[in-house]
């Protein structure tokens, strides 16, 4: 069993080949970071152009690195959503045409499903498990009971956690992308030097909210005028701590409300690369007698290996493709059709 997958939902163009046992034979990711940095965020039209420029050569590279050819493949997959529509269209059309020309089935995969199943690619985690999906575009707690079987226990009411990292970093003049920049600045800071709210702390539901925290950071920055380097470090540390505390608190609530005891607590998405987030979730999991499963850093962010794996999981379980082929900017994970 071999799958080739393409990922083009945001600002990374990626192609990967994965086999049915979960061996990643190749995973090529081209980051468009340099193209978006001047704008302080992802520009959809710039992203779409860059995806088209790269997708064919990345596919060739992924096949070459994996030492396979198109006839060797069993399935070709593309991220179908959610994401920026211009980029999705490139990956979907390219993937569909590639599949058509090579006589292979094509699977349109929900990007979030790719993140949700990454723990099974890397750690062979058994169902059911609790997933904290936390990235620049998403912050969700999802009960994963099978391939194509997802129940959202909580989601953000406004910004995603990664968005909060990015915006706070921008307020502090730390550059883009904000997550890694803020984490680096926070390393030398005192998280207790500034008091920031822990959004939704203790709420009965499992939802998140980060816009209030962002506003609180802005008020601190405005109040300071021009923060000193030390104040920037302290505010970065306080912000990171507040985000991590919120994520841990909401995840703890979800564990209480889970329909049964999970096999593990799984974290996925770009923010899963943050060491304080991982540390707090590890403490939480250990307190509950669970293992925290976090993918390696290269699989935390957007990549095509997770899309290939999701396609393989669908293939192997006989669920089959989601095949209407329509790229969709919004596509909640628990609305993912199980089949065509």
């Amino acid at each position: 069993m071999l799958a080739l997958a393409l990922e083009s939902s945001c600002d990374e163009t990626a192609a990967a080949v994965v086999d049915g046992k979960g061996t990643i034979l190749s995973s090529i990711v081209f980051s468009q970071l340099a193209q978006h940095r001047p704008y302080g965020g992802v520009v959809p039209e710039v992203a779409a152009r860059a995806h088209l420029e790269r997708i064919d050569e990345l596919t060739a590279e992924a096949l070459h690195t994996a030492k396979v050819t198109l006839p060797d493949l069993d399935v070709i997959a593309s991220t179908c959503g959610p994401g920026l529509i211009g980029g999705l269209l490139v990956g979907v059309l390219y993937g569909r045409a590639l599949a058509k020309g090579s006589g292979k089935p094509w699977y349109g995969i929900n990007h979030l499903e790719g993140h949700a199943l990454t723990a099974r690619l890397t750690h062979k985690v058994a169902f059911p498990y609790l997933l904290l999906l936390v990235s620049g575009g998403h912050t969700q707690l999802v009960w994963v009971s099978g391939v194509g079987q997802y129940k959202r226990l909580g989601t953000t009411l406004d910004d995603a956690a990664g968005e909060c990292f990015d915006k706070a970093a921008k307020l502090l003049g730390l550059g883009y992308p904000g997550g890694p920049a803020l984490e680096k600045a926070a390393q030398g800071g005192n998280a207790t030097a500034f008091e920031l709210p822990t959004p939704m702390l203790g709420h009965k539901d499992c939802n998140f909210s980060f816009s209030g925290l962002k506003t609180a950071v802005r008020h601190k920055v405005v109040g300071l005028g021009t923060p000193t380097p030390e104040q920037v470090r302290d505010l970065a540390a306080a912000t990171q701590s507040a985000i991590a505390r919120t994520l841990a608190d909401r995840t703890a609530r979800a564990l209480e409300q889970a329909p049964q005891r999970p096999t593990a607590l799984v974290v996925a998405g770009g923010v899963a690369a943050n060491s304080e987030v991982r540390a707090r979730l590890t403490t939480l999991a250990q307190g509950k007698g669970l293992e925290l499963i976090a993918p390696p850093l290269n699989l935390c962010g957007d990549n095509a290996a997770m899309i290939a794996w999701a396609a393989l999981e669908r293939w192997q379980t006989g669920i089959g493709p989601f095949d209407d082929g329509h790229p969709r900017p919004r596509w909640p994970l628990d609305a993912a059709p199980a089949s065509a």
């Binding site: 088209l52 993937g95 045409a97």
Partner: peptide, 12 residues
């Protein structure tokens, strides 16, 4: 972009 992406996939 649609036309070019599809053409790239078919040609490869």
């Amino acid at each position: 972009r649609l036309g070019i992406a599809a053409s790239l996939g078919l040609a490869r």
